[in-house]
Design a binder for these strands. Sequence first.
DNA 1: CTGAAAGCGCTTACAG
DNA 2: CTGAAAGCGCTTACAG
Lengths: 341, 341
Amino acid sequence: MSGAGMSEPSVGGAEAPRRRVTRDDVARLAGVSSAVVSYVLNGTPKPVAAATRQKVLDAVELLGYQPNQTARALSLGRSNVIGLVISDPRNPYFAELALEIDNAARAEGRTVMVLNSLARRGGGSMHIAGLSQQQLEGIIIADTLSEAESETVRSLSVPVVLINQFFANKGFASIGVDHFGGAYMAVRHLIDLGHRRIAFIGGNPGIDPREEGWASAVRDAGLEPGPAFHVPFELEGGYQAGLALADDASGVTAAFVASEQQALAALSALQERGFAIPGDIAIVAFDGTTCAAYLWPPLSTVAQPLRAMADDAVRRIVTNTAHEDYTSYPMSLVVRASSGG
Amino acid sequence: MSGAGMSEPSVGGAEAPRRRVTRDDVARLAGVSSAVVSYVLNGTPKPVAAATRQKVLDAVELLGYQPNQTARALSLGRSNVIGLVISDPRNPYFAELALEIDNAARAEGRTVMVLNSLARRGGGSMHIAGLSQQQLEGIIIADTLSEAESETVRSLSVPVVLINQFFANKGFASIGVDHFGGAYMAVRHLIDLGHRRIAFIGGNPGIDPREEGWASAVRDAGLEPGPAFHVPFELEGGYQAGLALADDASGVTAAFVASEQQALAALSALQERGFAIPGDIAIVAFDGTTCAAYLWPPLSTVAQPLRAMADDAVRRIVTNTAHEDYTSYPMSLVVRASSGG
DNA sequence: CTGAAAGCGCTTACAG
DNA sequence: CTGAAAGCGCTTACAG
């Protein structure tokens, strides 16, 4: 807000590792007890006389006092730090989600600590242990948990919100989008444009509602589903799927891609093989990141309301209302050049 | 490592917000003082008899004890959390840097807390205040600081490493790449391919050595510098620069782009205007993220040794050797399709 | 409205 | 090799 710390008096030698200003220093300067400093700074649990209050505030300003959040957290049993678990920060979707959650958290005076769970594929169990060791106010997990991981997370005594989820998760507050509906909308868009053989590119065969949405939309239109390519969500996965689609000889003229990260690389593979987008293959992706608009051709996509979802997740933590339930957000179709729409 | 917490005995009612297991519980069960538990767990400052040690370890295992890092941090005066300040997580460069730093930190048993400073453009002073309030072990800043911000950060009593820096920073340990040399190499590559009029796309006119590297390489070859387009580093900036380059009528046949995020969008703008890459305009970018390889056409680029830089930054924090100096890492040219090389 | 004091869960100098 | 005790910097029930 105002330049806290700006007026910190410069200390002679400058190099001496000056002791941090503590609440006691403030109390001494203001001529009150340290309890009163807390009352003023927290506005709780007691009212403070206006004059006293002002003395404290002046002392805080003069000393450039910064409350030690660690001590506060230890005393309170919780910090003002929210943990966010994402699998891979390089995925534009998670990057954008992290940014929105950071914004929402900041608006609530909270700080976000991002933990990358990518590493767990290399052995560790998402360092959940680490999560429980930090005195976090709450945890937002944008990842799929194994049964064992769910169990461990459930045993944590802090509010937990799962985001980017397909379904309700037993025992958790879950937030997701209507993956089935979004996919259906995307594919319906392609069908409306006249496509009759539409491929699917995504991950995890068998559990992703986006694949069902694709299949349903196709069948509801009386068509045969085109080929489905199941690849990892990393860029390389999308690239391989694009190459496979290029090699497909079944007359595919359009594809629905379950994530923009995969779509980015698939776009590259298809163009490398000489396919024109959308002329030879029309594409609609899924997620709605900023990046989609700046690819060539710009990606048509079904977009998640990330801001609203992030606000919701943070609110559930801050208000401690992360009880078991599932909130599904609607998606919206964004038509750009890649679908030829 | 091993399944800590796995053997935590299930508590009857399950719903009771069971009190966390503390060091005292462990001490009681092991029949030792709580000090000894610390000695065992930290291996310091005292040796412990093997038998005693085993009793403690057994108790820890049985109770599923997780040390409270907040209490530890308060007692020690520092945590095992390293703060990382980046401007925008959506920028592939920062995403990749964050991932590498996270990996390096994890290897040292540290956790990374990512802070987005993007918000500061909206008013706040990068919540440096927030930084000093958390009891961080150290701070890695991948951003350019204003004079006032530098002053504030300098006053923090924790090790600070600036990364992704153009130059040495008074009073700080700084890590960067040879921006001038990298740019020079990129442009030299284009010159070697026969280009005679080469444009520059980047940000911040006047202070970026990449622009000087471009200009020098061009002049050293006896050529006239092509037009320079200065735009923000966000995607929209790159897009606008691409459009401007497309409108340029001065016979440009190649461009050096100072970041891959800008290059991604510039590629889109140029192709939107019907330019073939590299046929009409050849492009070399700067950064070396994974993403560059999966764009169409794949981006030729000069790459930063991100892993090494991240390891270095983390090491400087962990070993508390972040004294004033500047380390410059060499870059390497990665030739892909966009330069036609 | 204000303050003395206990407590959060660790670490470590000091004494045995 | 082991333990009693003080201390890190806050918060807050309790007493005045």
